[in-house]
Nucleic acid binder design. Structure first.
Length: 580
DNA sequence: GCCGTTTTCGGCCCGACTGTTTTCAGTCG
């Protein structure tokens, strides 16, 4: 493999993983130092390969030792320390560390005292009941590990669930909890509230005076695969679908501190706690407390805690320590977009598309109810097998739209979602495409082309004079299909040059473009559209997800074209042939 | 391994639960 930033990040991530085993703790200072360096490099967009050791050490969290490892990687393609760790901790041994309940300390003892090197060794040792003889281990631990081994491969520590699978479950659980007697507040937290595209487990925080009945209900819910823990204020279960859910109960006064704490991210929390310490306070899940007197300063709302720390309140999706603390301190967070800010939907399918289900009239009626000023109908272009619409179908639709638009407050425009062919070609011909009010274009096929070809086809579509936005940039389906690989920087620069908008697709299975692409795009000054990509009428109501994704990318409201008033939007939509 | 208007040494974020202990270590988030 040739040296690249991606390759470096992979090797550093492996260095973190193996160092946990070597140091015996994920909290070891060396491990955390590597993690901090990795975190910094992930959000660094510039050219890394050309940086010297002294330039690298200017980056936050990167000292001489890590800087030298980075140089070593670019010069030799590998890192000697990592090579040594790989020899000490071969992959089959690392696999053992994925077993829930088995940490680096126990693992090291299993190896040194019982000679266990891999899963087969562990299985044999458990069958021979050897583990229970080790000091500090017992029969229960042995049985717990036996159970964990049975489903290894299914539920490991690394397993993550697509947000589309976790979010409905979390919303249902929170609704049920809120309806319970004695429950004052309930909220899902964790990576789900931060709106990450995959989540490790569902964290729910409840405010209630009496935790016991809630705990009892939770561990006795129907359809659970396993109860992992059942304490006074904290319990964990695994659902039949294999998703772990953690529930924590606090008092109403502690609720703000608790959801702040359990929403994370870990890196964001550490920054907040550091800020508290600098002021002579401590911050934990129960509140912001004076370190000397033990008096609680604030705890009931997140906002009050941020304000006490002299920070603007940070929306949950931004809490990844990607610059939000500094911007909150300067009161310079981007103005977020909410569904109420959206004045139109620019990517909607009717039942003319083979994969969509609602008639035009129903779509239009719902868009009007949502208070939109404009709506662009974008059925699939004819090159999409099965689902595309031919010229005659679109011409008939044009007539239907004209009739519905007559006398309507809502501006109904006819657009189309074109297919970007393998070489960047588009459906129909330029003359026919010119008849639409707005064209968007997206990749629906040929996901396996080489990176160069993908970059070229995207740029060709972006440069087409009629194309005003690119739908679901990568074409990925989270957890099911990886997106196409392409040169992100080159593609984003083409967006800027042509004033083409990058779609923020609200479909939970897509959430495309990804947050990291959005972060980069907004830095470069790209414009955006937040769309529903609805394939049935209720899909129009999912804009909230696109808005949360936009927050993850620090996308400011002003850069989102469909927050603009109708006149300004139409001017942008029609400013086509001018820019080439 | 990183870092420094208290510093080049000595710090580095915090707590619940479990299983094994009889005061705590390990794991997890």
């Amino acid at each position: 493999m040739t040296a690249s930033k991606e390759g470096l990040l992979e090797q550093l991530a492996e260095l973190v993983e193996l160092s946990i085993l070597d140091e015996g703790s994920p909290a070891a200072f060396r491990v955390r130092a590597y993690e901090n360096a990795l975190h910094e490099l992930r959000s660094y967009h510039g050219e890394l390969e050309s940086l010297s050791v002294s330039q690298l050490t200017k980056l936050e969290g990167i000292g001489k030792s890590t800087a030298q490892k980075i140089r070593e990687y670019f010069e030799t393609g590998t890192i000697a320390k990592l090579v040594k760790l790989r020899a000490d901790y071969p992959p089959e041994y690392v696999r053992l560390s994925k077993i829930p309940g088995l940490g680096p300390k126990t693992l090291a003892r299993l190896r040194s005292e019982l000679g266990i090197q891999n899963v087969d060794d562990l299985r044999a040792a458990i069958e021979q009941e050897k583990l229970r003889d080790l000091k500090g281990l017992g029969e229960k631990t042995e049985k717990k590990l036996a159970r964990a081994l049975e489903r290894l491969g299914g539920v490991g520590k690394d397993k993550r669930t697509p947000i589309a699978d976790a979010l409905p479950l979390a919303r249902r659980l929170v609704d049920e909890l809120r309806a319970m007697e004695g429950v004052e507040r309930a909220e899902y937290c964790g990576s789900l509230r931060r709106f990450r595209e995959t989540i490790g487990d569902i964290d729910i925080v409840v405010a209630a005076a009496d935790a016991a009945p809630i705990m009892d209900w939770f561990v006795a819910m129907p359809g659970l695969r396993e109860v992992l823990g059942h304490g006074d204020t904290k319990s964990s279960v695994v659902t039949a679908s294999g998703i772990q859910v953690d529930l924590r109960v606090v008092t109403a006064e502690q609720f703000g501190a608790a959801i702040l704490y359990f929403t994370g991210s870990k890196a964001h929390n550490i920054r907040l706690r550091q800020r508290a310490i600098d002021r002579g306070w401590t911050l934990n899940e129960y509140g912001l407390t004076d370190a000397e007197s033990g008096d609680v300063i604030v705890s009931d709302t997140e906002r009050a805690i941020y304000e006490a720390l002299e920070l603007a309140p940070v929306p949950p999706p931004m809490r990844e320590d990607r610059g939000e603390i500094e911007r909150a301190a300067d009161d310079d967070l981007p103005t977020i977009v909410t569904p109420a800010d959206l004045r139109g939907d620019l990517h909607v399918h009717t039942d003319r598309s083979g994969d969509a289900h609602s008639p035009l009239a129903a779509i239009v009626a719902r868009a009007a109810e949502l208070g939109y000023e404009y709506l662009v109908i974008t059925d699939h272009g004819e090159d999409l097998p099965q689902n595309g619409v031919d010229r005659a179908g679109l011409e008939a639709q044009r007539q239907e739209i004209a009739e519905l638009a007559d006398g309507s407050e809502l501006a109904i425009l006819q657009g189309v979602e074109l297919n970007i062919g393998p070489d960047g070609g588009l459906d129909y011909d330029a003359e026919f495409r010119a008849g639409f009010d707005l064209c968007i274009a997206g990749v629906h096929s040929d996901f396996d082309l080489p990176r160069e070809s993908q970059t070229e086809r995207l740029i060709a579509a972006i440069r087409d004079p009629k194309v005003r936005a690119i739908s679901h940039l990568s074409g990925r389906l989270i957890g099911r299909r990886p997106g196409i690989e392409f040169d992100v920087e080159a593609v984003l620069k083409a967006f800027v040059e042509t004033d083409t908008a990058l779609e923020i697709n609200s479909g939970l299975a897509r959430l495309d473009a990804s947050d990291s692409v959005l972060l980069y795009a907004q830095e470069l000054g790209v414009k955006f559209v937040i769309t529903s990509d609805a394939h049935r009428v209720d899909g129009l109501d999912r804009m909230q997800w696109g808005c949360l994704l936009a927050q993850r990318g620090f996308v400011p409201r002003e850069a989102v074209v469909n927050t603009w008033p109708r006149k300004r939007f139409l001017e942008w939509a029609r400013a086509t042939e001018s820019i080439q």
